[in-house]
Design a protein around this nucleic acid. Structure first.
Lengths: 126, 126
DNA sequence: GTGAAAATGGGAACGAGTATCATTGCTGTT
DNA sequence: AACAGCAATGATACTCGTTCCCATTTTCAC
């Protein structure tokens, strides 16, 4: 893997925010630094970064993927009104994982938890 | 909501299997009963059934949605090699939900857990 | 039955993401 | 510093699951 300018810019962008952005948003930000960067490159870099474990790819229930430049054992809660995503500690422990393995016979390698609800601001907004 | 033949056929199909089928598979099955049913209708009916809580819509990590005609408080485990999906009891309890609400300030209305791993058959297949 | 509203069928349109390929530009070597 | 090799890029065409549109059909309350 080569350390290209595009890769560094995308990684910086995705690490500089906690808004769990879409690929399109990352693309718009990246164009401010490299005006002719292509969307394909943004997707390619994000995919590569995910394989390397430097980025998490999220599913917010819409068709678009969202990206999180702060990987680690945390999960996400998504506002059903405004789409805002916040971080949540992982509530699934090793014991639960072992129970699932025994019940299903599957060899578990990962899990993902998504919470849905209303963020504090949308609760006030009626 | 009107009780149309198309609606009844789609509901019967999605309830008659535990394979968590794609919309396309449901469409193929439905055409055996109503040869000129349209794919758009299958999508519309599945969406309506989901709103009514009669069907769950799943995300297996690919572009395709999968549907489960047996809703209720269970979650899913997806084979990373063959895509097979099995049911899993929900490991998230009320206490965890309340903890998440307090930590985030979100008003939680739902959660989703996906497990990933290898199904028993794919473990044998090397 | 009748009429109004809802659902359907068929096909066009949409759009997030992927593939293609000629060109660019890293990086290790001399 | 030039070189060579090959991974990465930019531009764009393409894929394909899903949604939209609208004329026609069907359901259902009366």
């Amino acid at each position: 893997m080569r350390n290209t300018r595009q890769r560094q810019v995308v990684l910086d962008i995705v690490r500089s925010t906690n808004t769990h952005p879409t690929a399109d948003w990352v693309y718009e930000q990246a164009r401010k630094v490299i005006p002719n960067i292509s969307l394909g490159t943004v997707y390619r870099v994000l995919g590569r970064l995910q394989e390397e474990g430097l980025v998490m790819q999220l599913d917010d229930g819409s068709r678009k993927s969202r990206f999180d430049g702060h990987p680690g054992p945390h999960q996400h809660i998504i506002c059903e009104r405004c789409g805002r995503i916040a971080d949540v500690p992982d509530v699934v422990d090793q014991a639960a994982t072992e129970r699932v393995q025994q019940m299903t016979g599957y060899q578990v390698s990962a899990h993902r938890v998504e919470w849905f609800g209303l963020c504090p601001e949308c609760q006030q907004g009626g």
